[in-house]
Computed example of a mutant assay.
Amino acid sequence: MTGILDSVNQRTQLVGQNRLELLTFRLNGRQRYGINVFKVKEVLQCPRLTAMPNLHRLVRGVAHIRGQTVSVIDMSLATGGRPTADIEKAFVVIAEFNRTIQAFLVSSVERIINMHWEAILPPPSGAGRSNYLTAVTNIDNELVEIIDVEKILAEIAPVNETMDESISQSFAEAEQDTDIVRRILIADDSTVARKQVQRAIESIGFECILTKDGKDAYEKLEEMAKEGSIYDQISLVISDIEMPEMDGYTLTAEIRRNSELKDLYVILHSSLSGVFNQAMVERVGANSFIAKFNPDELGNAVKTALIK
C-alpha cells in the first residue's frame, strides 16, 4: 500500500510541475504517436477479438479484458489510415477517457518518456481542421504526434451536449436579482471538446471566449486585464488540464499569482480522473474539478459559482 501511495504522490508532483509522461507508439508506418500515461490503465498484446453486429466501422471488435467487455478501436483507421495489419502481433492500449474505458489497437508500443508541457506544442497551422492532433513534440530529433482521442470518441459515440432546461431557468431567474457577467473563458486544446463546452455554455445564455491551451488563455487574460477589471469582463474560467505549453494546473496557479486575476473562479474540466486530480485542485487553488463530459454537471458547476 505504501508503494501505491508513493506512486500517486510522485505523479501528483509531476503534474503540478507542468510535466507529463508520454507513452509513445506506432501505427502502420514509421510515424510515432503519443498518449498521456495518466490516461493509460495498461498495455496488452491484442487479445482475441469478437465481431458483433452493427459495430462502428472504426471498432475492430470487442474483447473481454479484466472482467469487462471493451470495444477495441483501430487507431490507424480512426486517424484516416489503413486498417492495422497482423492483429495477432498488435497491442491494445487500455485507457480511460471521459468516464469510460476504451481499448486502442496500435501496431507497436515503445516507451514512456517524462516531458515538460512546454515541450508539447500546438499542431502546425497548416495541419488543417480535419487532422486528429491536439499537439506535437520532438523526441530524439523525431516529430511525435499526440492524437486527439476526444475527437475520435466523439465520432464513434457522440455525447449529449444539451443541458437540462431547469439549469437555464435558474440563470434566467437569477438575472433579475444579480448582475452576472455572461461571458466565460474556455481553455481546451481539443477542438471537439472546446466546441462541446461552448455549445453547452451558450445554451444557458453565456458568451464564450475560446482559447486553445493554457498559455493562450493566460495571455488572453493578461490582455483583458490591461483594458479594465477582469471581473467586469468574464465571470469565470473553464479549463482543460492536459494542454500544450501550459497545462490547466499551471494556468490556475499563474492566475492565483497574478494580483489582477487571483480572484477569478476556475473550474478544471478534464477527461483525466483519479485521486491526484482532487489533490491538485486544492494545491493550485482551483475552485472545482469536474470530469468530462456531462453538460448538466458543467451547468451546475457554473450555477454553483455564480448563483448564491
Rank of each mutant, 00 (worst) to 15 (best):
I156W: 02
E142A: 08
S130M: 11
P83Y: 10
Q233M: 11
S203G: 07
F91I: 06
S259M: 06
P123K: 15
R182A: 12
A119G: 15
I184K: 06
L5G: 08
S288H: 07
K151C: 04
G128Q: 10
A154D: 12
I167L: 05
I238K: 03
A225M: 13
G214V: 02
R111S: 14
E260H: 14
S166Q: 08
S71N: 15
Y231N: 06
R199P: 12
G16I: 01
S108W: 08
L55C: 02
L58E: 13
L77E: 15
I307H: 00
R19M: 14
L261H: 08
A154E: 12
R66M: 04
S235P: 05
I87Q: 04
K41D: 03
N300K: 09
I234A: 03
L251F: 06
V93C: 00
A253N: 10
Q10T: 11
I290A: 13
D74S: 06
A90R: 06
G214C: 08
F289A: 15
V8H: 15
V284M: 02
F38E: 10
I255F: 14
R194T: 01
D74Y: 05
E145W: 12
L298V: 03
S239R: 03
K292Y: 10
G248V: 00
V93K: 00
Q196H: 11
L143G: 05
V59F: 12
I73H: 03
G126D: 06
A78H: 10
G3L: 11
I184A: 04
T252R: 04
F97I: 14
G61T: 05
A200I: 12
Q31V: 10
T79W: 09
K303R: 13
N160T: 02
Q31R: 14
N131R: 05
L261K: 02
T100H: 13
L55W: 03
R182N: 07
K195Y: 06
I230E: 04
R99L: 15
R194P: 09
V302F: 03
P158S: 15
E21K: 07
D164M: 10
R283W: 01
S125T: 11
V72D: 02
N258R: 08
I307T: 00
P158C: 12
N18E: 04
S190W: 06
S130P: 00
F276M: 14
I73T: 06
G274D: 01
M115D: 09
D216H: 02
R111Y: 13
E21G: 09
L221V: 03
V181K: 05
N294G: 09
L268K: 03
E96L: 09
N300M: 05
Y231A: 07
D216Q: 01
N28T: 14
Q198V: 14
S259Y: 08
P47E: 07
